[in-house]
């Protein structure tokens, strides 16, 4: 464990708490893409189900349980408790265009052609693109609540911090995980535009608004 990864994971944790806080305080899931949240459930369940047969560490176990449970809980909040506050008419990204190609990529690029390893690859590829419905929705509405942008910033920072972690591990341990690295770079790049607007508006105390 190095500090980049630790802060990356903490940033991921923070993003979940920010999202829960946003839903609870505004009593609404307005501005949050259900499709993105559903993809995260698929990502975490497919990747972290290995807690059932693989023991890495207490840290690893607790985090995995947390991410599976919290993503499911958020989906429950959106689908049941705050259902009327979710507007499917602006959450229109075609998720099937992501899942198909990701499944194909997972079948081609994996470390072993077994069910669980292909599933792991799929979760990595899917995670890198899971934010797209959310960013698409943001693009459509052209603005976002400040708390929602903090959620996205924390989520984006998580994978961005994994990049120096991989560089560090390459030099200190001599290992490289090309599948995770490639997908991680793509995932981080997708946030570039968001981060630009975030730093030039929200951090300066202005409202997050995309140019028309």
């Amino acid at each position: 464990m190095n500090l980049f990864r630790l802060f990356g994971d903490l940033s991921h944790l923070a993003s979940i708490f920010i999202l829960l806080h946003k839903i609870r305080t505004t009593r609404s899931c307005r501005g949050i893409s259900f499709k993105t949240q559903a993809l995260y459930v698929a990502v975490f369940v497919s990747r972290y189900l290995d807690i059932l047969w693989e023991w890495v560490s207490l840290y690893n176990f607790v985090m995995k349980v947390f991410f599976i449970a919290s993503s499911c809980f958020i989906l429950y909040l959106m689908k049941m408790k705050y259902r009327p506050t979710h507007d499917p008419s602006i959450d229109t990204f075609r998720v099937e265009f992501l899942v198909g190609p990701c499944a194909l990529l997972a079948l081609i690029f994996n470390y072993k052609f077994t069910f669980t390893e292909v599933l792991w690859s799929l979760s990595i590829f899917l995670e890198s693109l899971a934010i797209l419905p959310q960013l698409f929705m943001l693009q459509r509405t052209g603005e976002a609540e400040t708390i929602t942008t903090h959620y996205l910033a924390a989520l984006g920072a998580y994978r961005a911090l994994y990049i120096p972690n991989w560089i560090y591990r390459y030099f200190s341990e001599g290992v490289v995980d090309p599948i995770a690295v490639t997908a991680g770079l793509v995932q981080t790049a997708l946030y570039a535009d968001f981060f630009y607007v975030y730093f030039t508006t929200v951090i300066q105390g202005q409202k997050f608004e995309l140019p028309a």
Partner: peptide
């Protein structure tokens, strides 16, 4: 370096 999946990463 070796190409492998980092099992300890989240």
């Amino acid at each position: 370096g070796d190409a492998a999946r980092a099992k300890d990463e989240l």
